[in-house]
Simulated assay, not measured.
Amino acid sequence: MRHGSGSAFVVSVHDVASWSLEQSRHWVGELDARAVPATLLLVPGPWRGPGPAGDPALAGWVREAARRGHETALHGWTHQAVPGGPPARRLLNAVLARGCAEFCALDERSARTRLERGLTTLGSMGLAPCGFTPPGWLASRGTLAALRALGLEYTTSHLAVLDLRTATAHRMPALSHRPGGLGERAGARLLTAAVRRWSARGTPFRIALHPDDLARPGLRECALRAVDTALEAGARPYTYAELVRARRAEAGGRR
């Protein structure tokens, strides 16, 4: 399929781990059929089972996906919130992130320890991620400082993609489902409508796919319809790394 020169969009496959291998394969298969590169967000530590380094099937599949043009990115260490932090941050974790916002209140030292563990684990699998998406899209100032110190290229929030090398925030809202949550059906309709509107306007956006979405056929169909809508409107798919580097090159060319 030829991709047009309209708005940019990124499709991320979240929560890639041993327990979610079947779901991750399904999502990537659907994206391969559409020639859409994905950013695979790996949880490198133990979460609902062993980490990916101890799972040859998962490690082999991720490496093969990377060879086909999909990107591998770091997605926390255990994907579980750490006790402590300011009350406001604890509330955000409980309400918005459903208890997964591992990096929302960490100081720089604690964040760096977890990030280094994750990078080392993925490195042992032959993977060298250049980007980080915090679970729940929530990261503390300490986490941002640790990411810069470790030399990663980018991180993401719910509303933007941050180039850590240039300190440029590219506004790019993320659309995702909340299976079983209040407003699930209304949210699904909003996702498709937003993709159609933003694609037509040339507004950059992101579509986040989660393993739990596949438990509800309606959400699966809605997400894939949104991807198809973006492509039909001429939107161009990127991985996160491709997007950040393209924007950096464009900014350099304008100087």
Rank of each mutant, 00 (worst) to 15 (best):
A186L: 14
A186H: 09
G187L: 10
A188V: 06
A188Q: 12
R189K: 10
R189Q: 12
R189T: 04
L190Q: 12
L190E: 13
L191Y: 00
V195C: 11
V195D: 09
V195G: 07
R196E: 15
R196M: 00
R197A: 13
R197Y: 00
W198T: 01
W198P: 00
W198A: 07
W198M: 12
A200Q: 11
A200L: 07
A200D: 05
G202H: 04
T203N: 00
T203R: 12
T203K: 03
T203A: 03
P204F: 02
P204R: 04
P204T: 01
F205C: 02
F205Q: 03
R206S: 08
I207A: 07
I207M: 10
I207R: 03
I207G: 05
A208H: 03
A208C: 14
A208Y: 01
L209K: 03
L209E: 02
L209S: 05
H210L: 07
H210I: 04
H210R: 13
H210G: 06
P211S: 08
D212Q: 13
D213Q: 06
L214N: 11
A215N: 11
R216H: 14
R216Q: 12
G218V: 04
L219P: 02
R220S: 10
R220C: 11
E221A: 15
C222L: 08
C222G: 11
A223K: 03
L224P: 02
L224E: 11
L224F: 10
A226Q: 03
A226R: 01
A226H: 02
V227S: 08
V227L: 09
V227K: 09
D228A: 06
D228L: 05
D228F: 02
T229C: 12
T229V: 10
T229D: 12
A230T: 03
E232R: 15
E232G: 09
A233Q: 13
A233W: 05
G234C: 11
G234W: 08
G234I: 09
A235E: 02
A235L: 08
A235Q: 03
R236H: 15
R236G: 01
R236M: 07
P237C: 08
P237E: 08
T239Q: 08
T239R: 09
T239H: 04
T239F: 08
Y240D: 06
Y240F: 15
A241D: 15
A241C: 11
A241H: 14
E242L: 09
E242C: 06
E242S: 14
L243R: 13
L243E: 04
R245V: 02
R245S: 13
A246R: 15
A246Q: 14
R247W: 14
R248T: 15
A249G: 02
A249N: 06
E250C: 06
A251K: 08
G252Q: 14
G252S: 13
G253S: 13
G253K: 10
R255H: 14
R255N: 11
R255D: 12
R255V: 11
